[in-house]
Amino acid sequence: MEDKVLGDGIVKQELNLLFVIDNSGSMDGEKLGAVNNAIRDVMAIMPEIQEDTGDVNIKISALTFSDDVKWVYPEPKSVSEFRWKDVSADGGTDFSRAYDEMSKYLCKRSKGGQMPELGGVAPIIILMTDGMPTSYDWENHLISLKKKGWFRVALKYALAIGIDTDEAMDVLKKFTGNPETVLKVYTAEALRKVIKVIAVTASKVKSSSTHTGADGAVNNNDLAQAEIADRLENVADVEW
């Protein structure tokens, strides 16, 4: 009778998928339309992925930023709960506030964030933007964000939507810390495909192939990154 106690309380590990979407004025129209579409597409496939994996709970969050920051839901939602609401565009591109908001999100729940107290799989963060930061001190805010353990271990992608200056690309490379996970996307169709490939592949690989702890997270990121690269080969209008 007492032995049913041991073995109780074991909880599935959490895998957080975070979309960070620039909804400044310049994203208006086709670009944001494509983002809305793409996330809807992702959400259509996620239930299958969740079903295929036994030991991980996928949680989804979305943050939009322009002059202000706004969470689509106040806390991460499970695949079955998450309903995408189309976002609209207005204002500047305040990266500083977006980075601060991510810093808060990447803390443990007991410290006001959304990460689990114990355990957890390294999150997936996908940042989408079409422009330069309009806040001058974004780099300092990025430095604080990089101090967060959960940020350092996260699999980070940045999608540059119709960006062509090296300066703007550098901003994104500084965010991911890895030039290979910054992608230039030129058309709405390409954007839709890229978001889908990254979100779906990363969730799948990270929730099924390995476990947390020991060699988990990092190799896990490498594996996901390699598979995403493979799948993106065939997508037109994307540049690495």
Binding site: V5, L6, D8, G9, V11, E14, L118, G119, T212, G213
Partner: peptide, 18 residues
């Protein structure tokens, strides 16, 4: 080690369950 504690998600749960 972390392999023991990670499956329990919160300290309360870990205390109570393990």
């Amino acid at each position: 080690t972390d392999g023991v504690i990670n499956p329990y998600q919160t300290l309360d749960n870990f205390e109570r369950s393990l």
